[in-house]
């Protein structure tokens, strides 16, 4: 609650436009709009285009969502279909509060 102006930097790693990737991105955008409106940035990285980036963030599963900011880095793999899990994983409280 102290850092309300914190911008969330999220990175979604995909490999081409697979149904899982598309679904993951759609889910992510939906949750962000709901809980982090105006405070987030989503960067989508397609590893088919930039395979060299996989090493940096230790990506092995696709899709992987990486929370770069706020630290610590957190990762969620999968199509993000479970909202509650994603929120817990990213440590987003529905009331937009940080731990």
């Amino acid at each position: 609650m102290a850092k309300k102006q914190q911008t969330w930097e999220l990175r979604l790693y995909v490999a081409g436009k697979t149904p899982k990737s598309v679904l993951a991105l759609r889910n992510l955008e939906k949750y962000c709009e709901t809980h982090l409106k105006g405070q987030y940035k989503i960067e989508v990285i397609d590893l088919l285009v930039q395979p060299q980036l996989a090493e940096g963030d230790q990506i092995f599963a696709i899709p992987t969502l990486v929370r770069k900011v706020p630290e610590p880095i957190r990762k969620i793999i999968g199509d993000l279909s479970n909202e509650a899990k994603v929120l817990v994983g990213l440590n987003i409280r529905p009331v937009k509060k940080e731990s």
């Binding site: 899982k20 679904l23 092995f60 599963a61 696709i62 279909s81």
Partner: peptide
């Protein structure tokens, strides 16, 4: 560090 939700694959590893 890892949370799993829904379907995924190991394409990341393959690509790497």
């Amino acid at each position: 560090e890892i949370e799993e939700t829904g379907e995924y694959d190991l394409d990341g590893l393959f690509i790497r």
